[in-house]
C-alpha cells in the first residue's frame, strides 16, 4: 500500500509536468464552472447584500440569520433541491440542464449564494458609523454612498468572493448529482478524484488532488496580495 502511494505521487508528478491532456481538461473545466458560478454569484449577491445591509425592513434580522445558517448548506441538499427542479420531470426539465456544465454552474451558484450575501453584509457592517456619516455629510447621494462604502469594504468583500469560489471548486456532492461525472463533459476535479479513488487509480487522484490544493494556494495568495496593497 505504501508503495502504491509512493508510485501514485511519482506518476502524479509526471501527469502534471507533462500536462497530461485529461488532467488539463478536467482542471480547466473545474475552473471554468466554478469561476462562472462565482462571477454570476458575485454580480447578483454583492448588490443584494448591499441592498439588505442599507435598508431597514421587517424581518431583516431573521433573514440575515437564515442566510448565515445556509453557509453550511450541505452540498448534496443543494444538489437534490436543484435536481428536483431541472430533472426531466421537474418544472424546469424542458431546459435540459441536468448533467450539463450549465446545470453545475447553477448548482454551485445556489451553494455559494448564502456565503456571498452573508459575508458582503458582514463586510459592510465593519465600516463604522463615523465613516458612513462622513460620506453622507460630504453630500453623497444614496447610490454614491452605497458605492463608496462598498468600495471601502472592498477587501472584505473580495475575501467573501474568494471564499465562495473556494467552496464552489471544492464541493463534490452537487457536482456529482447535477453533473453526473460524465467523462469529457461534466467531469471536474472533485468528481474525478472520487471516481478514480474508488476504482483504485491513485495516481490520477493524487495529481488532481495536488492541483486542487494548488488552486487553493493561488487563490489565497491573490487575496493576500490584494489586502496588502
Amino acid at each position: 500500500m505504501v508503495n502504491e502511494i509512493m508510485d501514485g505521487f511519482v506518476q502524479a508528478f509526471w501527469l502534471i509536468v507533462t500536462l497530461d491532456p485529461e488532467v488539463v481538461e478536467i482542471t480547466l473545466r473545474s475552473l471554468e464552472i466554478s469561476l462562472a458560478a462565482t462571477i454570476i454569484g458575485a454580480s447578483v449577491c454583492l448588490p443584494l447584500g448591499g441592498f439588505i445591509h442599507f435598508h431597514e425592513f421587517r424581518g431583516k434580522r431573521i433573514l440575515v440569520n437564515v442566510i448565515q445558517t445556509l453557509y453550511a448548506l450541505p452540498t448534496v441538499i443543494a444538489g437534490l433541491f436543484l435536481f428536483l427542479f431541472i430533472s426531466r420531470a421537474g418544472p424546469f426539465g424542458f431546459l435540459g440542464m441536468l448533467f450539463t456544465p450549465v446545470g453545475m454552474v447553477l448548482a454551485q451558484f445556489i451553494l455559494i449564494t448564502p456565503i456571498l450575501i452573508g459575508l458582503t453584509i458582514s463586510a459592510l457592517s465593519t465600516i463604522d458609523r463615523e465613516a458612513r456619516m462622513t460620506v453622507k455629510s460630504l453630500g453623497a447621494s444614496g447610490t454614491q454612498s452605497v458605492l463608496t462604502i462598498m468600495q471601502e469594504a472592498r477587501f472584505a468583500i473580495l475575501a467573501a468572493v474568494i471564499l465562495g469560489f473556494g467552496r464552489a471548486i471544492s464541493e463534490v456532492g452537487a457536482a456529482m448529482m447535477i453533473g453526473g461525472n460524465i467523462r469529457g463533459a461534466t467531469r471536474v476535479l472533485t468528481t474525478a478524484i472520487t471516481l478514480e479513488t474508488s476504482i483504485g487509480d491513485f495516481s490520477l487522484s493524487i495529481a488532481l488532488g495536488i492541483i486542487l490544493l494548488l488552486v487553493a494556494v493561488v487563490v489565497n495568495l491573490i487575496l493576500n496580495v490584494a489586502q496588502q496593497r
Binding site: 463615523e130 456619516m133 462622513t134 455629510s137 460630504l138 463608496t148 471601502e152 477587501f155
Partner: peptide, 11 residues
Amino acid sequence: AMLLQKPVVFN
C-alpha cells in the same frame, strides 16, 4: 460640511 472628533479617512 462637517468634521468629526474621530479623524475619518477612507482606505
